[in-house]
Design a protein around this nucleic acid. Structure first.
Lengths: 197, 197, 197, 197
DNA sequence: TATGAATGAGTTTTCATTCAT
DNA sequence: CATGAATGAAAACTCATTCAT
């Protein structure tokens, strides 16, 4: 929480307006005044809920990714094997971004144009997601479903890098193809690798 | 070639100065005047070699990535099997960015803060690299070294996403660890996947 | 109205400051920042009232010439004959520019240094004034006070050309002579021509 | 003579190129480099013939107006009465600008966008032309063809103002109408004035 | 809480002119 | 005489943030 306040209907309205404006006009054309107008509030009101524009963007990412991660965590809890857990994670990753194309544009393209400082804070939010990936990998190692000598950090980079690259391609191709349908083949690819068994 | 000129010692000096200034000060603090001073030329001279600042950045990426890709291609030609080619590609990827940390900062962090238009042009340059990855995968499929039912696009996204994510982590961790040493384990991971054989 | 706003005390203050700065420093030395300082506002405030610098200059001309024309029209309405109307027009033309030397400098010298596009818009404003001249000429023809075969367009060019040339000479001679005193002789000249009756 | 040099084939080529480039692209888009290219010389060569860009423009005006005035003077010498001399002057004024539309654009529109200093020097060149008008008026007064009480300065302003305004209108209307055909009616208008005789 | 008018710092690019060759 | 690569000063405009109401 950047400010003690948070919550209130306007807090949410502003964040949703920001997602919409950034998705529609791009990060560099998403002026505070434009977001305020889209949210139906005065420019100054935004500063009652957020310390500054950067805080708004971080809060946006925190809120959206928080929900994203929670739903993924819940879904994973329902799975039995690490293998199924990974499939579930991939499916949830693709499903949630498929269902909110505006958010996908914002997270995959627009928010990456921000400065290093902001991206560092975004990275912090991602850590919880990466920890989730790690826990699946750990379980997989312990249960010998995954290679026992697996370097968790490398495996996590492979999984996240693959998913992220795939979603970015999907967004840049104007979400023409069915992203969720890729979950199973990608899961299989990550599990078996390139080699011919 | 955006301008008929190009080449000449100043062309290279300006590009190298741009890499250095962007790496040192960040994309948003890399003013033309700062780059000019670093290159030892007048501000206006930059506009004799580049149409505008964006053209300079694109040219920078084209030149550096062009060289990056060429060296990788040459190295791959020396390899016999698709498996070795992939290892070679990973090693060259890591080696070249390891050896030019400034360039790594610029390509992994700073140049991603640019607008969509510029990133699109950067994407064009990358296509040649991705085509190289595809050719290795294709050879692997044909020789049955790689899974014959491999979806090349997905496999390419896995490979590039993994390498890119790994290098970005290396840069963001202030290149504390030995990037090149990761080539072999990552290669193994990509070949075998997560599963316990 | 280029912007919905307009009006308000600052709108007028900025325009008056622009006239003063342009008259004093010349068109090419009338930077926005100089005008803002003279108006006692911040640079950015100018852009709340005017779309850009060109819009400010056009608005300036529209406002000043609008008032100029209105006053002339009202004075002409008080006259009975076309002959007296013409005298009245000449007197108002000279009187109003005599009383605002800064404005005279701006309209006769400085605003003519602008590009064709801006001058075209200035020309539009002048059309109302030229229409006023035309109406006097038309009345004069109909009442046989003026030559019934008069080519109105040529006559208007003679009148406007003569007045404009005279005022420009007055401005360029540092308004050393009494401009208003020339109204009657010029009126007589325009009515009778050069010939010896 | 601004420089001792002058003359030489390149001197004329540069001036003619300047007229063409200014007419075609407008004063503000008539860069020295563009004029040099049009003249088929190097940028620096212009500075061998002209002190600076302003000197080039003044020389352009001097050369073209010098020729303009000389031809007018010669034509007037052939006339007997002041009345015919005035008609001759008007005809030559319109004829010469009609025959060189590029020059008309340059003198009527583009060269007026220059700063006060340059326009003052242009005014000096015009003085010889105005003196020619004055001499006709003087002859007319002395021979009682023109009103003996004529204020020569005012009459000159009327004549020049009318001609100038007419030519400017012709240029701004894309020289759609026959300018020379206006010489006689304008002559009649200037001689007889507006009144119904 | 909410408003929105006002602020003012900060940067790319052009182009007349020079001068070493 | 001729070249043309190099110079470097100069200005309009945007937009995150504030604060009086």
């Amino acid at each position: 929480m950047t400010k003690g306040k948070k919550r209130g209907p306007k807090y949410d309205k502003i964040i949703d307006a920001a997602v919409k404006v950034i998705a529609e006009h791009g990060y560099h054309q998403a002026q505070v005044s434009k977001i305020a107008k889209a949210a139906g509030v005065a420019d100054g009101t935004i500063y009652l809920y957020f310390k500054n524009k950067e805080d708004l963007l971080i809060s946006l990412f925190q809120k959206k990714m928080g929900s994203f991660i929670e739903k993924t965590e819940m879904e994973i809890l329902l799975q039995k094997s690490p293998d199924e857990m990974l499939l579930s994670l991939i499916q949830m990753h693709f499903k949630q971004l498929s269902e909110d194309y505006d958010l996908a544009i914002v997270t995959q393209l627009e928010l990456r144009q921000t400065n290093k400082q902001l991206r560092a804070k975004i990275g912090d939010v991602l850590k919880r997601y990466l920890a989730l990936v790690d826990s699946i990998l750990q379980k997989g190692k312990e249960s010998s479903v995954f290679d026992e000598s697996l370097d968790i950090r490398l495996a996590r980079q492979m999984i996240f890098g693959t998913l992220d690259e795939t979603v970015t391609n999907w967004v840049m191709n104007d979400h023409k193809f069915d992203l969720v349908a890729l979950a199973k083949p990608i899961h299989r690819l990550l599990i078996n690798g390139l080699s011919n068994k």
